[in-house]
Each structure stands twice: as structure tokens, then as C-alpha cells.
């Protein structure tokens, strides 16, 4: 990925990138060491307060670091795919490369642990499922679950994964709302989840 590029600037942020331990200060320093060992020059590290997705915040940091950005041959972005594309769009004359694989939207019950919770389907149904998303947490993402592979509360895919429909069943039972599972859930409008999306909030 960085073949042929010698002078690199690293990007990280104090938001998701730091929370996921891919683009916090520590990981930027580790990457700097790693690249130096491989005969690259790291001209500097740009650490955005908040997220690299926030274009204004990134622009400000870029202004503060104009000299190294001008000298750099490439950027390595230690954050999500949005971040890499933001830097690409802000400095199109140079290439920005991803240092991470963006995986999912999740929760962080403790440091270094992340679990998927949302697939951004565009039409939230958590009000019907006791606050547990079957689209994100059922391995098949089905709406009239569980499938026949749910045994002892676990998913057929692997013995570690909880069956989301068992969780939903248990939760709705506690809430006295099991009737929600008695009627057929309609075919979903997946067009709501298909990109490219854009959202413009009207100002109040």
C-alpha cells in the first residue's frame, strides 16, 4: 500500500479511532515506530479532537500542520473509511490510505471489546423488539425468527454467538409484550438501507 511513498503523515482522532484502539495517540506512536523501522519518514501525526468525520475540525488541524502536509507524499489514516475519504477529498492531490478495516457499529462493554449492535437499516424496529436488533444481532438478520438453528440460546453459526431471537423472546416476555412476536413481520423495505445516502437536516 505504501510502496514508493517515503514521507508519510499519520491521522488519528480522539473519538471512534481512539475508542477502537486504532487511531489514538498510542497507536499513532506505534505506527510511527513501525514505519520508521521500515525506512519510512513520518513527518508528523495529526490528531483530531472529536472525529475525522467532522470536516471543520479536520480542516483546522490541517491548517495548523500545513508545512508537513505539503511535504508529505501520502497520508495513512488510522480511523474509519469515512475518515480516509474525508482526507482524500480535502487533499485530493495526494493519496490517503486506510490503516484500518471498518467493521461495524457496536457497543464497547469494556476496553478492547466491541460487539455489533446496528446495521443502519434506515428503519428502526427496536420499539418492537424490546431494544434488541435482530438485523444486527441475528446471523441471518431475519425478521420472523428464530430459525431452526437456535438451540440452548445459541446461534447455529457458532457456539459463542447468542441467538438474538432468544434474547428478544426473553426480553419481551419480561416486558409482558410477547404478543409482538405473534403476528408476521412484514417484508422489509431494504431500499432505505441502500446507499449512497445523504441527509440534510433542516435548520430549526
Amino acid at each position: 500500500m505504501l510502496e514508493g511513498y517515503e514521507k508519510i503523515v499519520l491521522f488519528g482522532d480522539s473519538g471512534c479511532a481512539q475508542m477502537c484502539d486504532v487511531g489514538g495517540i498510542l497507536q499513532l506512536e506505534d505506527m510511527e515506530d513501525f514505519l520508521r523501522q521500515h525506512n519510512k519518514q513520518v513527518l508528523g501525526k495529526i490528531f483530531v479532537q472529536g472525529g475525522i468525520c467532522d470536516v471543520n475540525a479536520v480542516k483546522q488541524e490541517m491548517e495548523n500542520n500545513r508545512a508537513i502536509l505539503d511535504e508529505a507524499e501520502a497520508f495513512l489514516i488510522q480511523a474509519c473509511g469515512v475518515a480516509t475519504q474525508n482526507v482524500t477529498e480535502l487533499i485530493p492531490e495526494k493519496e490517503s490510505f486506510p490503516a484500518t478495516d471498518s467493521k461495524f457499529l457496536g457497543t464497547m462493554p469494556q476496553r478492547f471489546v466491541h460487539q455489533e449492535r446496528c446495521i443502519m437499516c434506515g428503519e428502526c424496529i427496536l420499539d418492537l423488539t424490546g431494544g434488541i436488533c435482530p438485523l444486527a444481532r441475528c446471523a441471518k438478520g431475519i425478521l420472523n425468527g428464530p430459525c431452526g438453528g437456535s438451540m440452548n440460546g445459541k446461534c447455529e453459526r457458532d457456539p459463542e454467538t447468542d441467538c438474538a431471537w432468544q434474547l428478544i423472546y426473553d426480553r419481551l416476555k419480561k416486558l409482558g409484550k410477547l404478543d409482538k412476536l405473534k403476528s408476521i413481520w412484514e417484508i422489509k423495505d431494504w431500499s432505505l438501507s441502500q446507499g449512497p445516502h445523504s441527509v440534510v437536516h433542516e435548520e430549526a
Binding site: A139, K140, G141, I142, L143, N144, G145, C147, G148, G149, C155, E156, R157, D158, I184, W185, E186, I187, K188, W190
Partner: peptide, 27 residues
């Protein structure tokens, strides 16, 4: 519904599940 692909020989496949088996019957 269909078995999860991770149980077979093509675990890298993208699964569809646009519908589930009940919705397919409805269809």
C-alpha cells in the same frame, strides 16, 4: 431459511436474506 454459509464450503459468500422463509411463503 437456509443454513448459515459459515457451515459450508463457501463461507466468504454474501448471504441475501432479503426475505425470511415466512415472508417467502407470503410472497
Amino acid at each position: 431459511t437456509g443454513d448459515h454459509t459459515l457451515l459450508g464450503s463457501h463461507p466468504q459468500a454474501k448471504m441475501v436474506y432479503d426475505l425470511d422463509s415466512i415472508q417467502a411463503l407470503q410472497l
